[in-house]
């Protein structure tokens, strides 16, 4: 209970911190709009060229809303490697580790405070854009609810994977290269740009056994097919959460022993 109270305090403090830079938040949203305009043009051309109203079981507005869902997740995801790498390089880790709060739990709470409002903002802005351009409101209350329910474990999975990778800074000092590869893998195999239902069968089979699609594709496809297969999705997320959570814990336990905190 005490631990939860601490993490809530961290969450509240970081929430305020995020909104102390409204200009930066606005700029992130502009980036989403630019991406969505490009997607709109590409997918409209694709639907026209194929002469079909459905691709992978999705209409054009649903496809665009799917992409809003995936982009909202990826654009709001926390930059663990930059934050932890900075702590290691500057020696700021010394202050962090002398507080009576778990370093990992602290990072989770801080990342949630930064990511969750951004996700909601991105979802609303993207949806409004799709609505304005296609004339169809692609988001239903059920779709939004299913998306958010699937997003929470997806966020935890993403955090476990990228925190574990970012903790390699304890040995390497800079985990940028490691996380760069991982983010690209999420983009390609996680279904950021194209739903898994449109992947070539062999690639789709690979993507489905990896946890990356559970972080992006899984929640985003709930927007157009609310609560369809959500139990299986949550189960798989739970299993992978246990695996990646254990990997994170082991990485931290080993990393903190190998740590060389810089500076006098």
């Amino acid at each position: 209970m005490k631990g939860l109270r601490k993490l809530l305090a961290v969450f509240r403090a970081y929430l305020r911190s995020v909104w102390s830079y409204p200009g930066a938040e606005a700029l992130r949203s502009i980036f989403l709009i630019v991406i969505m305009v490009v997607f709109l043009s590409l997918w409209r051309t694709t639907y026209d060229a194929m002469g079909t109203a459905h691709l992978g079981g999705l209409t054009l507005p649903q496809m665009l809303e799917y992409l809003v869902g995936t982009e909202a997740i990826v654009l709001s995801s926390p930059a663990f490697a930059a934050r932890i790498g900075d702590d290691v390089r500057t020696g700021g880790l010394a202050s962090q580790l002398t507080r009576p709060v778990s370093y990992i739990a602290f990072q989770f709470a801080a990342a949630a405070a930064e990511s969750w409002p951004r996700l909601v903002l991105n979802l609303l802005i993207g949806t409004a854009l799709v609505w304005a351009v296609t004339g169809v409101l692609p988001l239903t209350a059920a779709g939004a609810a299913a998306y958010l329910i699937a997003y929470l474990p997806a966020f935890a999975l993403y955090a476990c994977l990228f925190l574990a990778l970012a903790l390699t800074s304890f040995w390497l000092e800079d985990a940028w290269a490691v996380t760069f590869v991982a983010t690209r893998m999420v983009m390609i195999l996680g279904g950021l740009l194209v739903p898994l239902s449109l992947f070539p069968p062999a690639l789709a089979a690979i993507a489905r056994i990896l946890p990356l699609q559970l972080m992006v594709y899984g929640p985003a496809q709930q927007l157009s097919h609310p609560f369809s297969g959500i139990a299986a999705l949550l189960l798989m997320q739970g299993i992978w959460l246990a695996i990646l959570g254990s990997a994170l814990w082991l990485t931290y336990a080993r990393g903190v022993r190998a740590l060389h905190v810089h500076g006098g």
Binding site: A13, R16, S17, S20, Y21, T90, G91, G92, A94, S95, T98, R99, G263, G264
Partner: peptide, 11 residues
């Protein structure tokens, strides 16, 4: 640690 801060810079 005089040469580094334990405070949150943006808060």
């Amino acid at each position: 640690f005089g040469q580094r801060s334990q405070l949150w810079f943006h808060l």
